[in-house]
């Protein structure tokens, strides 16, 4: 089963990290993975995205034009990627900042006020990407939550390991919201 996904938002929002964690967790479950960043002349505050493919079979193209799942964190990304979600696919969008909601009716649209929830419930806006990731994993069963925890431990530098419990709370909160 092949899942083709895109994570898109502003640089600094953690879109590349979300993709990395998910791909790493899937690899730990024995799946084939590819993670492809947009690596243009970009900067903090500019747009960033990464395509993540996860499959039981070897992955042919790491670059695709339509996605099973899109997770978008800002308005420009929603504008760019809404039309590229496959029919019956899932679009998860951060609804605190994105003012103009998606309009498509042939896909599942999931608004999630991740910024607001992270700020109010977890007192740290930085983990809002983990909320969205939790929601995605709940909806698609892409990986087990335990694998995400292993991924956090393996990919976060040791000096940030004290933040793992907070990230776990964020993932749990994201899972509970969908």
């Amino acid at each position: 089963m092949l899942q083709e996904m895109i994570f898109a938002g502003f640089g600094g929002q953690g879109v590349l990290s979300m993709g990395t964690l998910l791909a790493y967790a899937a690899m730990k479950e024995g799946k084939e993975v590819s993670w492809m960043p947009s690596y243009g002349p970009e900067m903090r505050g500019g747009t960033a995205n990464c395509m993540v493919n996860i499959s039981d079979e070897p992955i042919s193209s790491p670059i695709v034009s339509e996605y099973d799942v899109a997770v978008v964190l800002n308005q420009p990304s929603l504008k760019k990627f809404e039309s590229r979600v496959k029919k019956d696919g899932i679009l998860i969008w951060e609804s605190t900042h994105i003012k103009e909601p998606p309009t498509r009716k042939d896909i599942t649209v999931i608004p999630l006020p991740a910024v607001e929830k992270a700020t109010n419930d977890l007192k740290n806006v930085k983990v809002m990407n983990m909320l969205l990731l939790g929601a995605l994993v709940k909806l698609k069963n892409t990986v087990k939550k335990e694998s995400l925890m292993i991924a956090l431990k393996d990919t976060l530098p040791r000096r940030h390991h004290h933040l793992i419990p907070l990230n776990e709370q964020a993932i749990n909160l994201g899972m509970s919201l969908v």
Partner: peptide, 10 residues
């Protein structure tokens, strides 16, 4: 090429 250089895989 740049894509193979930049992408991550198992």
């Amino acid at each position: 090429d740049g894509a193979i250089g930049q992408m991550m895989e198992k």
